[in-house]
Design a protein around this nucleic acid. Structure first.
Lengths: 183, 183
DNA sequence: GTCTATACGACGATAGAC
DNA sequence: GTCTATCGTCGTATAGAC
């Protein structure tokens, strides 16, 4: 199977980081082209639709990377093992809490764009809920616990960005297994 | 004592809401003047320093409003009573989770501005920690629990903004008393 | 496929009439 | 104290050479 790269993933990742860190409005083409190591006009060659298309590419790529990040939840192992692996995976994705989150960035945009990251939130919630239900938690309670855990992590990322303190994020990571596998 | 209003608080609140919802870069003078019901030039009469001064006013005002919001934590009552009152106060401040948070908005700005909301975070954390220590939790653990609870709430606000679902926020509010008063 | 050069609008900010 | 009018700059986007 051909896993893609019709468009350069490294390029999109660099662009995505700028958007995650500064928000869509805050991410100027100047910043984006600097991060990409390309001139503005060259970005338009890759993304004829301009910033909007860059954002879409970033969101598509985020969905892709999320799938990888969340994969441990769906492996063939007992819930605790999966929860531990998932926590490690998430911790790596956000580099111990020092990476900004595209979900947070999108939550500040115009009304049309504000909900564009909700598929990512749903995927994340589903992955957590899967482990919780596999641990014997009823679906409804599992879903609540799952969203709340996502919120905990998003909030920890905000705190880390605002204060530089990544310890709340670290505690959130540590709490993933116990939260998802306890009744 | 004269509690202020050298500058019109209602005006600043309207401006602050725009910044909280769109971020500092995303909040154009157009949006700000529309929300204020004043023309751009009139805003410059009130805030000669332009957007930067508006932001400072919004942050000062946020600190002021936070003090009011957090006041229940320091009243003369038992921890559980205070925790309940505080939860209600926070719930009102964020209108059940439908209001955006300036802290989240600031976390997306340039490096200079990114940490400008950390005093608010600290005040919030201290208020929570006070109740926790008064309930017999040791200072270090109380502080961790406090920041984590702030993160939980911030994350719930992000989720609400991104999906429209305010139930995680509602659960966070409900969890405040039990989190702060349990050992 | 990347570059330089440039068009054009929006934005932040200021001057000055009322 | 609010307005209209305007300035310079930056941001998005395009044209066209290499």
């Amino acid at each position: 199977m051909r896993p893609v790269s019709i468009e350069d993933n490294d390029l999109i990742d660099a662009l995505s980081r700028v958007i995650s860190r500064h928000g869509f409005e805050g991410a100027s083409l100047q910043m984006l082209s600097d991060a990409a190591g390309l001139k503005r006009a060259s970005l338009y060659h890759r993304f004829p639709g301009g910033k909007a298309e860059i954002l879409n590419a970033a969101l598509d790529r985020a969905a892709e990377r999320f799938e990888v990040m969340l994969a441990p939840a769906y492996e063939d192992a007992d819930p605790t093992t999966r929860a531990n692996a998932l926590a490690k995976s998430i911790d790596g994705y956000y580099d111990g809490g020092s990476e900004s989150c595209l979900i947070v960035a999108m939550s500040l945009d115009d009304d049309e764009r504000r909900t564009m990251a909700s598929p990512c939130i749903n995927a994340w919630t589903s992955a957590f809920a899967k482990i919780a239900t596999d641990s014997g938690t009823k679906p409804k309670a599992a879903n609540e616990r799952a969203v709340d855990l996502v919120a905990q992590i998003e909030g920890a990322l905000v705190i880390a960005s605002a204060t530089g303190d990544t310890t709340p994020f670290a505690r959130a990571m540590k709490r993933i297994p116990e939260t998802l596998t306890s009744r």
